[in-house]
Structure formats: structure tokens, C-alpha cells
Design a protein around this nucleic acid. Sequence first.
DNA 1: TCACAACCGGATACACCATATCCGGTTCGT
DNA 2: ACGAACCGGATATGGTGTATCCGGTTGTGA
Lengths: 212, 212
Amino acid sequence: MDTRRVDEGPDAAKPRPLRRDAELNRRRILRAGREVFAARGLQATLNDVAHHAGLGVGTVYRRYPDKQALAEAVFAEELDEIAAMAQEALAEGDAFAALAGFLEKSLERATYNRGLRELMRHGTLEGTGLARARGEIASRCERLVARAHAQGVLRDGVTGADVVPIAAMIDAVMDLSTERPGEMWRRYLAIILDGLRARPDQAPLRDAGGTG
Amino acid sequence: MDTRRVDEGPDAAKPRPLRRDAELNRRRILRAGREVFAARGLQATLNDVAHHAGLGVGTVYRRYPDKQALAEAVFAEELDEIAAMAQEALAEGDAFAALAGFLEKSLERATYNRGLRELMRHGTLEGTGLARARGEIASRCERLVARAHAQGVLRDGVTGADVVPIAAMIDAVMDLSTERPGEMWRRYLAIILDGLRARPDQAPLRDAGGTG
DNA sequence: TCACAACCGGATACACCATATCCGGTTCGT
DNA sequence: ACGAACCGGATATGGTGTATCCGGTTGTGA
């Protein structure tokens, strides 16, 4: 029997604070994870992360039972930062510029973050600890789009759900170039944004629903 | 000394025709390769192909020393078919419709062909047997674009080199949906095409050159 | 200062996978 | 009918990512 927790509530689950060195290492691991996943993508190994953090593999595995756990911790932070960008965009006056600016800023951040890009390409995130942040981003995109529609600057039929595919498309352009992504993607984002703008003579945009 | 080839030219390199059964199997393999690469992508194994062809692994390895060899044979055919589509498009009167139609048709073909999509995403193809077909497609795209410019229907600054990134973008949309690609990509192709169309008030398209 | 729990390191066991070969048996071509 | 060409697929090989284990070290509270 474990007597140390006898006075905590039934399901307290309050993890005792880490020893000082352990806590320091936890941060090191998180930071290394961010850097390694950004540089080499999600396929990077916990061994890679450990080495990059200057720690042993065992140390990493003790703190994060597997890659999934570390990845969730890392990307929860990053997605929150993107959610914050969306929030800022909601403050801008020109709704089209707000939407465009959000896309540009968030994609710019993704440029040198392979892990983030792989994540947003495979989408779902259901059942992971990232669902909350993802939902927040989605709902803010929805509002961004609604605002633009209200101002009449966005083509009829455009939806908040269009943001993810657009991001995926730009990501594909970044992937195209060997080595570093470069700035080519901005060209294509511009093209897409022009296709999204409301125009007088416009043909109706085809249905958003369907098989995928 | 090999007396059988004594009267062929210095570097004749004319492979003796295959035995009937071997030739039959060669075709079976090629066909199976097409189907398997289309369904499961380039990561499919030669063992997979062999099984799908109803043949032993050894049979496949004898004909095609490795996956690369088979893949080149398979995709040379497929790229030639796409090159033919571009050729047809060059005959159409309306140059914008021709370009749009070519993109739509070729991407439609890619929809259910994972291997083809992976190929066009990674691009280069340099140093493979596919470089020729790729070059043919590229030059026809160039002509398609030039024609559209001549008719004044294409936005200033659009290049033949834009075709590959556009294809990559649509491919990314197809990848987004779990399971079969569906028809969603047509929506985004429409958006992009609208962004490509010449318009009176248009801002100049940003530079095509650069780091990638 | 001491004692012990918590922690560290990284060699290593494990499981998985694609690749490619080898060779006894079979079929084709002459 | 004879030999060359061919077939089949079990299996050797090498590489990779995952996760554990345990002897040695360090932080912490008494």
C-alpha cells in the first residue's frame, strides 16, 4: 500500500513534482523535440531527440512513453501559437486582409517546420491531445470567413473548411523544392487568394460537400 | 567466345527475343505493376507485384532487377499517355479552356493512381528513363501557356513551370481525404484556375524565380 | 553526513520489413 | 529428346525504429 497519497482525493492523480534535474531535463527534451521534429519531421526517433538534447535515450523514454506522447506535447504548444495568430487576425478591420494575413503568417511559420506541415497534411488529429487546439483554430477560421462574407469580399461558397485544404496545397508547394522550402509558395498563395476573392462576373463555386 | 553475335554491329546490344512464356509473364508483370503501384503507391514491393501477377518473386526479379526498373517501365507508359493528352489540348481553339481541360483530365487520371501522384510530387525524375516523357509534357505545357497568353486570357506572369506546382497542390487535396480521393479537388482546381485568369484590375503576380 | 529513492545513460534485445538470391524442378524450342 | 531458358518461393541479409534493463550517479530529506 502506498501511504504517501492517502489524503489526496479519490482520483487526485496529482503527479508529485519532479526532482530538479529531472524537471530541467524535461524542458530540454521538449525543446529538443521541437527542434528535431521541425527539422526532420515526425519520423524522427526519440533516440534522435535524446541525442539532440544531449541526454540518454532512457531519460527520454521515462518522461514520454513513446513518440506520440512527446509529439503531442510539442505540437500542442505550436498549435496554440497558431490559434493565437487567428485570434489576432480577428481584430483586423479588413476581413479579407485578415484572412489572407492569417494564412500567410501561419504558413510562413510552417515553412521551416516539417513536423507541423506533416501534421496539418494528415489532418484529423482526432483522439489525440491536439484535438482541442485544432478545434480552436477551426472555429476561429470559421469566424474569419464569416466576417469576410459579411463584408462581401469573399467569393460565395467559401467556407472555413476550405482553410485546411488550402494550407495543404501550399504545403505541397513547399515540399516540391529539394532542400529548403524557399519563398515560392507565396506566389501560389497569391493565386489562390485571388481565386477566393469576390468578383462581379463570377461563376458559382462548386459544392463544398462530397466524398472528400 | 560467343559466336552467336558475331555478325551484329559493334554495340548492337540487341536482346534476343524472350521465350514465349517469358514474354507473356513480362506483360503480366508490367500490368500487375501498373495496378499495384496505382493502388498502393511506389512503396509497394516487387513481392507484392509478383503475387498480384500470380507469379513467383524470382520471376519478377529476373525481368526487372529492382523496383526502380519496373517502375520506370510502368510510368514511362503512363507519362506518355499524359503527354498525349497535352498534345490533344493543343488542338482546342479556346486556349484557356485547353489548359484548364488538360489539367482537369490529367489530374482526373491521377486521382486513382497513387504511384503517379507520388511521382509528380517528388518531381525531378532527372537521371531516370522518365526524363524524356517528362520533358515532352513540360514543353507542351509551355506551348499551352504561350497560346493562352497570345489570346490574352491568362494572367501576366504565369509560366509553363507553374503547371507542376499546381498539380502538386491538387494532389495534396486528394491526399487529404482518408480512403479514396473523391471529387473535392475539382473545387480547388476551379479556385486556382480563377486565380490564373487574366482580369482587368489585377495586381502583378509575384516573381516566379527564386529559391524554390 | 547518511541513506535511499529517483534518476541517468546507452548498450542491447526485439520485432519488423524490404530486398535480393539461390537452386531444385519445370517448360519451351529445336 | 535434350539442353537452355525459365519458374517458384523459401530464405539469407541488412537495415531500422522501438523500447527495456540495469549498473552507476545524483538529488533530497532526515
